[in-house]
């Protein structure tokens, strides 16, 4: 096995496409090193992207934010302007693991690890975030929704990796929120995750919404019926009931050591409702 740590994106792309055998991108490493230790992954090459300065940046771009693939969760949490625009995305990233994990784990790594229970992914999907993928044939922008294809699998082509993630501009009276259910208060994998991003008009009527669920299907779910339940409403009880019902209906979970089908189905709606109310408050309240 070899370890390489290029200092530019071009070098990294070249190294990745010319590597013989299995090459894995090492960002925070909080999933990869655990999988290697357990014998689940046995790369021939580890390509550490943390020496690439460009991937360490959080940059304002067209009113939105571009977040480099090597930016840690802790760095995102310390970026006041980013937190102000996308509190739900940042809180989702900051829920991953402990303080120690936050010092290492990256949002791009969370995305590319492609766990159905990844905390940041529902929030990114609700935010309509776009991943910038680089590879031997140049770069392409891909909706985050389309990156994971199933548990542990992505749509990235050989030689490609995610270099950054773009969060679009945030309009007035817009906000997002993410909630997950875990049995403890920390240190667990989401049993269910729910993210809501919405915009209110001056009267408190929801004009736009995206609702996404985690850990209730092989990959993140964008629940359009749930968003429809909110749009045009004042986020009152009937709208929230319809949202919860749509989320529970969309959930197609499995039963495993972390939760039952019934539990995940039920709680998906509960969390979506609660996340909506948090986002509503953040967006400036009912009116």
């Amino acid at each position: 096995m070899q370890y390489i740590s290029p200092t530019t994106v071009d070098e990294a792309v070249h190294a990745l496409s010319s590597a013989t055998g299995a090459c894995r991108i090492l960002a925070g490493g909080t999933d990869l090193l655990v999988q290697m230790r357990a014998g689940m992954k046995r790369p021939d090459t580890l390509l550490d992207i943390k020496r690439i300065d460009a991937l360490h940046q959080i940059t304002a771009e067209d009113g939105g934010w571009r977040i480099g693939a090597a930016v840690s969760g802790a760095e995102m949490g310390e970026h006041a302007a980013l937190v102000s625009d996308w509190p739900g995305v940042v809180e989702a990233v900051n829920l991953i693991g402990s303080t120690q994990i936050q010092g290492r784990a990256t949002m791009a790594g969370n995305l590319c690890n492609a766990s159905p229970a990844a905390d940041s992914v529902p929030a990114l999907v609700a935010a309509n975030a776009v991943a910038r993928v680089v590879g031997p044939h140049g770069q392409r922008d891909v909706a985050v929704l389309d990156i994971p294809s199933g548990p542990g699998k992505t749509t990235l082509e050989p030689g490609e990796f995610v270099a950054s993630t773009y969060l679009p501009a945030r309009g007035a009276r817009s906000a997002d929120a993410y909630l997950r259910f875990i049995p403890r208060t920390e240190m667990d994998i989401a049993v269910v995750g729910a993210a809501v991003s919405l915009t209110l008009d001056a009267d408190g009527i929801c004009t736009a919404a995206r609702v996404a669920l985690g850990a209730v299907a092989p990959k993140v779910l964008l629940v359009e019926a749930a968003a429809r339940a909110l749009i045009g409403s004042r986020l009152d009880a009937p709208a929230l009931d319809a949202l919860a019902e749509a989320c529970s209906a969309a959930a197609k979970p499995i039963a495993d050591k972390r939760g039952t089908v019934e539990f995940r189905t039920q709680v998906a709606g509960v969390l979506a409702r609660r996340a909506t109310l948090i986002a509503q408050t953040r967006a400036g309240g009912p009116a």
């Binding site: 049995p183 403890r184 208060t185 994998i189 050591k257 972390r258």
Partner: peptide, 28 residues
């Protein structure tokens, strides 16, 4: 509240780690 050995249908232990064998943490 949370601690338990979980066995699968294959008779193997499903949660042999501190991630899914959930001992209380400080914030609990």
């Amino acid at each position: 509240l949370n601690e338990e050995y979980i066995y699968g249908d294959d008779g193997r232990l499903q949660n042999a780690g501190f991630l899914d064998y959930r001992i209380p943490v400080a914030s609990d």
